[in-house]
Nucleic acid binder design. Structure first.
Length: 401
DNA sequence: TTCGGACCTCG
DNA sequence: GAGGTCCGA
């Protein structure tokens, strides 16, 4: 049996939070290239490391379900033999918005892993920034931007994570000249090679993200080159060394959360391997700078193609000035959470999510047919039929375009 | 400020 | 070429 938790299998203990899909879509949020540590380990089940522990997350319409695994050296490990129980039917217990599902072993209830201080709930709330009401933000962005509005119908629940700054910084140093799937592999090798092991599930060993000390060791560059990091190997080691030697450690990175955006960005850019794009990603995704729009060639294309944004027209490469102009353009359009809005558009442009647009388009076609039948059935005038069809066509066009 | 080339590897 | 950065001119 799979050691990775599966909600339907009923062999593991799950807890849950009330959270609708419009507030959070796991597949989009965890797969759009913000974090590189989550894998789909079962249908709609995402397993990864966060806050020093291994999690499996999944969701139903109004609920976010989570399971955490005990590492081997903590009490009550997960290696015990478990039998499948019918835990989802009627054994859920609700307390202060938390549902505790008790697992059963040979008919006898087994105690769920206790979470008396609700630490895990807090970690999830913090990581997904669930206090920020995404529905309200989508409404505001849609009102200000028709193009966003058309995308938003398909790409709901794309939310900015609040990641650990060290993990975010060193992951994004790996992103230059690179694409998501390869970055995922690199970050995984980085953790397996230099991070503390947490637990093993179905031949996959999960490790914590490496500490600055582990990354700063002189042997790291050669080791990472062997693991296929190329020129980025030196950047990783040197940036870690610089943070330890010149700034005193991870505390410095955390401290940038309370610094203004430009100050934080400039501080990050003193590190080797950190240019405007990487610095902006770290600011947005781990340092609470929600207004920051990281600009890469991709976002530049979106600005030109979908917004006729003239910034950088005639330019061959993304200069600092073009970065600033495009960032300002989107900030003006979307407001203080512009970085969050940018991630929705970014997500909708990813190859792996194109199917979502197609299926949505098919649904629209079906709606169109239904409307047509209804109109004909009600014997409306030709003029009204025409108007109605045009409206549906416009809607479809908007979705596709 | 801007530009081109180099840096790594892979599909 | 890819979801970039660094370096020298």
């Amino acid at each position: 049996m799979s050691q990775h938790a599966l909600l339907s299998a009923g062999t593991k203990s799950w807890r849950s939070l009330a959270c609708s899909r419009s507030e959070l879509r796991l597949d989009l949020t965890l797969g759009c290239g913000q974090s590189f540590r989550w894998r789909e380990t079962g249908d709609g089940h995402w397993t990864g490391v966060m806050g020093g522990r291994v999690w499996t997350l999944t969701q139903t319409d109004d609920t976010l379900w989570y399971h955490t695994y005990n590492s081997p050296n903590t009490i009550g490990g997960d290696g015990r033999k478990r039998s499948a129980g019918s835990l989802l039917q009627g054994s859920g217990k609700r307390s202060k918005g938390v549902i505790e599902v008790k697992e059963e072993e040979e008919g006898e209830p087994v105690a769920v892993t206790p979470d008396p201080d609700r630490k895990e709930e807090e970690l999830l709330n913090d990581y997904f920034q669930l206090k920020v009401k995404l529905g309200d933000l989508y409404r505001d962005w849609g009102a200000a931007d028709p193009h966003f509005n058309s995308i938003a119908k398909i790409f709901t629940g794309v939310r900015m994570l609040r990641q650990d700054p060290t993990e975010c910084l060193f992951s994004f140093i790996c992103t230059s000249n690179n694409h998501i799937s390869r970055i995922q592999g690199m970050v995984e090798r980085l953790c397996q090679s230099l991070g503390t092991p947490l637990c093993q599930l179905d031949q996959t060993s999960y490790h914590d993200f490496p500490s600055l000390h582990a990354l700063a060791d002189n042997s790291v560059e050669a080791r990472l080159r062997d693991l296929g990091f190329g020129y980025r190997a030196r950047f990783l080691q040197q940036s870690a060394r610089q943070i330890l030697d010149s700034h005193g450690g991870p505390h410095w990175l955390q401290g940038l959360r309370s610094a203004p955006y430009l100050q934080a960005r400039d501080a990050l850019r003193t590190l080797p391997g950190v240019g405007p794009k990487v610095a902006d990603c770290v600011c947005l995704m781990s340092l609470e700078k929600a207004c920051v729009v990281p600009v890469d060639t991709h976002v530049w294309q979106i600005a030109k193609r979908d917004y006729s944004c003239a910034a950088g027209n005639g330019q061959k490469s993304l200069t600092d000035k073009v970065h600033r102009q495009i960032g300002d353009f989107f900030r003006q359009l979307w407001g203080p959470y512009a970085g969050w809005a940018h991630s929705v558009l970014f997500c909708s442009d990813l190859k792996k999510f194109q199917k979502l647009k197609e299926t949505h388009c098919l649904k629209q076609e079906e709606e169109k047919k239904k409307v047509k039948i209804k109109v004909e059935g009600e014997g409306m005038t030709k003029k009204i039929k025409k108007m109605c069809n045009r409206k549906v066509k416009m809607c479809v066009k908007e979705e596709v375009g």
